[in-house]
């Protein structure tokens, strides 16, 4: 692609204070998001995918430290004063969360929660805000919007709450939507509705999306490009079809093998032995080496760099040539 990226992240590292020591939840992560692109961050619990997303706008607990660069509209958000960052956060960059029941304020009607964001990030007057909040509920597909605006979150179903949260996020007309497991708590038919809604809004509003999920199927169905995270690092990235079709990192291959696929019913799944390492005890060399069937001596001593294998597809694996000979998703 020749266009300039909308968001450019370089060497992002996030550490947390554990009292006696610090641990790095995200280590040296770099990626770009193009205008109108949906980038998926995928990984298992503790891989650092959610912390990466939250580090972009420093939505982190006190004691967390972010270094590196997050270049947005020509500015580095890392090191931006809290007052200036607040204008970006929830304004140009909006976020939606996994659990809308806890992300919404239970004691305020939905209308107040949407208008709050309109007041903070637009110049609309009172009447304009009222009109706009109803338009937003219509936009996210909540039927009977005029009446439902005055209802409280507990009167909404899980899917409708997620729609309401998306309406709040869209109130500021963001250029970038950060979505942290937005459909994990939802049933599959509702998940399908919400993911389609996010894609429709991307098309309509031309915004970019970073979608964090643990579900490779969600990535395959919604994202343009994807990055696979393990133990705080990006281990593989590229277009969704090349990465899922010809994975170049042993971990990606293992993840794909762990997901049951049609035609192999009741056979042994290619699972990954063991469990991911604790952040305080990340093995030297390649963090995945202790669980990897391809691992050799070099993997246990030298950390692999993220290097390109083909156009726009990169993996941090000493044995990516060998991994690529295995099969990914059977097409």
């Amino acid at each position: 692609m020749t266009a300039a990226p909308a968001l450019s992240v370089r060497n992002l590292t996030t550490t947390f204070d554990l009292g006696a020591s610090r641990v790095a939840a995200v280590r040296d992560v770099s990626f770009d998001v193009m205008p109108g692109e949906v980038l998926g961050l995928v990984g298992e619990s503790g891989s650092g995918k959610s912390v990466t997303l939250r580090s972009l706008t420093r939505l982190l607990p006190s004691g967390a430290e972010v270094s590196g660069q997050v270049i947005w509209q020509g500015r580095n958000l890392v090191g931006l004063a809290p007052k200036d960052l607040r204008k970006v956060r929830g304004g140009e960059i909006s976020m939606i969360f996994q659990e809308p029941a806890t992300a919404l304020n239970p004691v305020l009607p939905i209308r107040v929660q949407i208008e709050e964001n309109l007041r903070a990030h637009t110049t609309l007057d009172r009447a304009g805000r009222r009109r706009r909040s109803q338009e937003l509920l219509d936009l996210v597909g909540i039927p009977d919007a005029a009446r439902r605006l005055d209802e409280y979150p507990h009167q909404f179903s899980g899917g409708m709450r997620q729609r309401a949260m998306i309406a709040i996020a869209l109130a500021s007309a963001p250029r970038l939507l950060l979505a942290d497991e937005p459909t994990t708590a939802l049933d599959v038919t509702i998940q399908d509705q919400i993911l389609n809604l996010i894609l429709d809004l991307r098309d309509e509003l031309g915004m970019s999306v970073v979608l964090v999920t643990h579900d490779l199927g969600v990535i395959a169905q919604t994202c343009d490009r994807m990055a696979v995270m393990y133990a705080g690092r990006i281990v593989e990235e590229g277009g969704v079809s090349p990465v899922l079709g010809h994975p170049a990192h042993a971990y990606t291959l293992g993840l794909l093998g762990s997901v049951p696929q049609a035609g192999t019913e009741r056979t042994v799944l290619r699972s990954i032995e063991g469990t991911p390492p604790a952040l305080s005890a990340i093995p030297p060399g390649c963090a995945f080496a202790p669980r990897c069937v391809f691992a050799t001596d070099i993997c246990r001593t030298r950390a692999p760099e993220l290097v390109g294998t083909t156009e726009g597809h990169a993996a941090a694996c000493h044995h990516s040539a060998m991994v690529r000979h295995q099969l990914g998703v059977s097409a």
């Binding site: 599959v188 199927g217 169905q221």
Partner: peptide, 17 residues
């Protein structure tokens, strides 16, 4: 239809239910 397939070539932008 709603269950997301691992195959990106089988995308559908129609809501299943």
């Amino acid at each position: 239809k709603a269950a997301p397939s691992l195959d990106p070539s089988q995308r559908s932008r129609k809501v299943a239910a």
